[in-house]
């Protein structure tokens, strides 16, 4: 299935979870927050939350700012 991750198209196996996506991005264990279709998905739900075709995923972190 095709999903959008941070604005870029990405091919994932059907039913891939957020945890699987994070692992694929080699971001496991990093402090980040995830939103799917503009709704927050709490960290505790990452292992169970299955993504669907066309989902728009945002993976964010903290950077320098004023």
């Amino acid at each position: 299935m095709q999903v959008q991750v941070n604005g870029e198209g990405m091919e994932l196996p059907d039913g891939a979870t957020i945890a699987a996506l994070i692992e694929r991005l080699t971001l496991t264990g990093k402090r980040l927050a995830v939103e799917v279709n503009e709704d927050i998905v709490p960290r505790s739900q990452h292992p169970d939350f299955a993504l669907s075709e066309g989902d728009r995923v945002e993976v964010v972190h903290a950077i320098g700012g004023g």
Partner: peptide, 20 residues
């Protein structure tokens, strides 16, 4: 201390230090 929230760089080096 203030921080900004931005997209994680998907191609980033996994060992890159994080602000936090």
């Amino acid at each position: 201390v203030t921080v900004a929230v931005r997209r994680t760089n998907l191609g980033q080096n996994p060992d890159e230090p994080n602000l936090l």
